[in-house]
């Protein structure tokens, strides 16, 4: 059973005094992550919204020891910390349970510039949780496209809509043969909480990607973050799944879409709620553009359904 929002513990690791936008999904998600991780953890932050909004240093809005690292190297710096902790424990200089080492990185720092360091850390199976909060663009620098930006989306560097499909980053991480991979989003906090709690209990590399609808980049009304997150899942544009030791299982409500019990909602409504799509859906080619986006989603659902059948 998924933990309900009412059952989440009272622990607050995200404090007042951070500078995030109202309705910021990364901050919402981090709050849930904090409840699952508790205070015995070390946080790594690459240049991103979450580092720009962490508070006016030396004060910090996150109640963990934090290290602010280079954009390209979250995987490397986390590896450094985790190896140092392990050796200190081995030499008897560190007593008790080792702190959880986790990165809090945007999609640019995961899909693009940070991929090499992440891939290498995964290949070494270094002991960390790599979180990617995915707002599908470089929101912090004024919303430029990333490898996570879906086809058809406006960004300041794709003014007529991105022409390419996004990567399936979580699946790429699964193919690194790491012990745990999961996807989540803010509309399903219990699902996210359970996945983080599970990841914390597993040794080695864990990858958790959280879809983070950003009102500024996606151009919807600030209070609608959670609604947009839910619509992404119901339309199948974002699939909730997890994989322990390579075996994929889907979580509600994505499980119903995958096993055919329920159809994914047509993508139109989801797209038309967001300025990043609907501003480009006003011309005569609107139907074709929507069909392309729908085609990407349908293909991904079909592919992941088949991929989950492989259990060796």
């Amino acid at each position: 059973m998924t933990t309900s929002i009412k059952q989440l513990p009272d622990i607050e690791q995200v404090l007042s005094g951070n500078g995030a936008c109202g309705g910021c999904p990364a901050t919402m998600a981090l709050r849930i992550v904090g409840k699952a991780l508790g205070p015995n953890a070390i946080m790594l932050l690459t240049p991103s919204c979450s580092v720009a909004s962490m508070g006016m240093t030396p004060r910090l809005g996150y109640n963990w020891p934090c290290i602010n690292i280079c954009f390209a190297t979250a995987g490397s710096s986390a590896s450094g910390i985790t190896h140092a902790l392990e050796i200190m424990q081995e030499k008897g200089r560190l007593q008790g349970e080792l702190p959880t080492v986790f990165t809090w990185v945007g999609d640019g720092g995961t899909y693009d510039i940070g991929f090499q360091a992440l891939s290498a850390a995964a290949e070494r199976n270094d002991n960390m949780i790599f979180f990617c909060y995915n707002n599908e663009a470089y929101s912090n620098t004024g919303v430029q496209r990333s490898g996570a930006t879906p086809r058809g989306s406006y960004t300041t560097t794709t003014p007529s809509g991105k022409r390419q499909q996004k990567k399936n980053m979580a699946l790429l991480m699964l193919e690194h043969n790491i012990p745990y991979v999961a996807t989540a989003t803010v509309a399903y906090p219990g699902d996210l909480y359970d996945k983080v709690a599970k990841a914390k209990s597993i040794s080695g590399m864990k990858y958790i990607e959280i879809l983070a609808p950003c009102y500024l980049g996606w151009q919807f009304d600030m209070p609608e973050t959670v609604q947009m997150s839910r619509m992404a899942v119901r339309s199948g544009a974002w699939l909730l799944w997890e994989a322990e030791n390579g075996k994929i299982s889907f979580n509600k409500p994505s499980a119903s879409i995958i096993n055919g019990k329920k159809d994914a909602a047509p993508v139109d409504e989801y797209l038309m709620k967001q300025g990043r799509f609907n501003r480009l859906l006003k011309g005569p080619d609107a139907a074709q553009r929507i069909a392309e986006i729908q085609g990407d989603i349908d293909r991904e659902i079909a592919f992941m359904r088949e991929r989950a059948q492989i259990t060796i």
Binding site: I113, F115, G142, Q144, T157
Partner: peptide, 29 residues
């Protein structure tokens, strides 16, 4: 590649080059 305070140069090129026939490419790093 995006970085404040230079990103407007890339954004300007992203708007202009499709009309002019040049290449704008946002790299991964």
């Amino acid at each position: 590649y995006p970085i404040t305070p230079s990103s407007e140069i890339a954004e300007y090129m992203a708007r202009k080059f499709p009309q002019l026939g040049g290449i704008f490419l946002q790299a991964e790093s």
